[in-house]
Design a protein around this nucleic acid. Structure first.
Length: 462
RNA sequence: GUCCCCAUCGUCUAGUGGCCCAGGACGCCGGCCUCUCACGCCGGAAACGGGGGUUCAAACCCCCCUGGGGACGCCA
């Protein structure tokens, strides 16, 4: 059995978005599962739209997700001679020919075919003219005129096309550059790719690519077309249609493991399980469990997964990630201090961004604390201010300022006053955090420390 | 228009002829816990698109319809 080799072949004309990331993930997973190789190939034959920045961004995204490649990145723009040699070979074998039709003429042919109720296609006018190469000629494949192309899709099963539906498509442009279908076939063949997992939108390219393989007399790889990820409106997700870059999710405070977990469940499942670590996935992934119908990406589920991984995450790591988010808000706390705050926020935050917001009251100076005015109105009455003032004095004299001591002391206080804890809880919380919702009071106070707690109480009780 | 593909709760899905008057998860609703908000726990509403077959038996197999998606470039 030959070694499994998969590839991810993005075109650097845009960011890596969810659809692409999932395709990359599936290919990566399959390679890892089969102990094969995963190749990264940049399909930048469209010089006008491809940019090095996008290549960089795509690789950054893959690094963030931890989808490491074993070979590459290879750039199609640097392999032009290779493609040209294949094209020449095709022409010499009589499987391709030079065509002098202008784009306008071809367009007219397409219109005509459409009017006859057929699929728009090139008529094959130059097919047997034996034209020579020239500045205005392209190279077209000499595709079979009848019969059908059949392949067994790894996820969809048997798929077939009538050859009459296909036409003699272009292999080499007028400017001498190879087209997508040609370059893909040459590269997949040259790189020994065994399995191609790609988006559903490529099924229509498959018969064309099969024609090239056939003309070249090369055994094609296996194809598997994974269903599209649709937007909430069920339309194809694309750069200009609601698809955010993977890095945008990073900025929103999602963890890569949550991202991966969410992505893999779009079109793949394993029994009733929902949570998969990277190791789980490599162990459990299989092509058989890939689904075949399109799906919709759900942000709510991503957020749930993210909150799950936040709860499970190691505090030092979360601290580093949180720090990055705070830096972009121009706040630079001590990492040690963040590590004390994080455990209080872990069960509460859906994203790291949210965690950053929730951590704010721990990080700003007392006089800069942002108070919820409505809460202040409601809970900081003359009555409760008196209580807070008394509490401030008591806390100043407390021997130790940990949760246990605080709970004990305040317990003693309410017993003496013969009031319920509820009476002072919200006023305390508002005075200390500025809000009506926060982690537990005692733990919050301990982490905040005596000085700031007392200070805030005094500030708000006068 | 033509071709290809798809079709289970709002969403992601399990289900490969009897275990399914359909299971799990997110979300939603209700309750418990409780110093607030969460977490957690318990409970609830919620789906096999329609019609024909095949079969003793169909969500599962076949056909038709409908609906949805994708593709029809000298883009990838």
């Amino acid at each position: 059995m030959n070694k499994t080799i998969t590839r991810f072949a993005p075109s650097p004309t845009g960011y890596l978005h969810i659809g692409g990331a999932r395709t990359a993930l599936f290919n990566w997973l399959f390679a890892r599962k089969m102990k094969g190789r995963f190749i990264l190939r940049v399909e930048d034959t469209d010089q006008a739209r491809s940019t090095p920045e996008m290549t960089r961004a795509i690789i950054d995204s893959m690094n963030w997700l931890g989808l490491d490649h074993d070979d590459g990145p290879f750039f199609q723009s640097q392999r032009k001679n290779l493609y040209l040699s294949y094209i020449l070979r095709l022409v010499q074998k009589g499987n391709a020919y030079y065509c002098g039709c202008t784009p306008d003429e071809v367009e007219a042919m397409r219109q005509e075919a459409r009017q006859r109720g057929q699929k728009p296609k090139y008529s094959g006018k130059c097919r047997d003219l034996g034209l020579e190469p020239g500045p205005e000629t392209v190279v077209r494949i000499k595709a079979p005129l009848d019969g059908q192309v059949v392949f067994n899709d790894l996820v969809k099963g048997h798929i077939s096309f009538e050859n009459q539906e296909l036409d003699d498509f272009v292999l080499q442009r007028k400017d001498g550059t190879p087209t997508y279908n040609l370059a893909v076939v040459v590269d997949d063949a040259e790189m020994g790719i065994t399995h191609i997992l790609r988006g559903d939108d490529h099924v229509n390219n498959t018969p064309r690519q099969l024609h090239i393989y056939q003309a070249l007399e090369i055994t094609p790889p296996l194809f598997g077309h994974v269903p599209m990820i649709l937007g909430p409106d069920k339309k194809k997700l694309s750069k200009r249609h609601g698809a955010l870059s993977v890095m945008a999710y990073k900025q929103m405070g999602f963890l890569p493991e949550a991202m991966l977990n969410c992505l893999v469940r779009l079109g793949w499942s394993y029994k009733d399980e929902e949570i998969f670590s990277r190791e789980d996935l490599i162990r459990k992934f299989s092509l058989e469990n890939l689904g075949s119908s399109a799906c919709v990406f759900d942000m709510k589920k991503l957020t749930w997964l993210n909150s799950h991984y936040i709860k499970e995450g190691s505090v030092p790591r979360l601290a580093k990630i949180l720090m990055d988010h705070l830096h972009s808000e121009h706040i630079s706390p001590k990492e040690m201090y963040l590590e004390k705050i994080i455990p209080l926020l872990q069960p509460r935050a859906g994203t790291i961004k949210e965690m950053a917001e929730m951590a704010m009251f721990f990080l700003v100076e007392d006089h800069k604390l942002d108070y919820d005015q409505e809460a202040v109105q409601k809970f900081l009455t003359p009555e409760t201010k008196r209580l807070l003032s008394e509490i401030a004095s008591r806390l100043e004299k407390l021997d130790s300022f940990d949760q246990e001591a605080l709970e004990q002391d305040l317990g003693e206080y309410i017993r003496n006053k013969e009031i319920k804890f509820k009476v002072i809880a919200q006023p305390l919380r508002v005075a200390i955090t500025g809000k009506t919702a926060s982690p537990g009071l005692f733990e919050t106070m301990e982490v905040l420390g005596r000085e700031r707690v007392v200070n805030r109480l005094k500030l708000m009780s006068s």
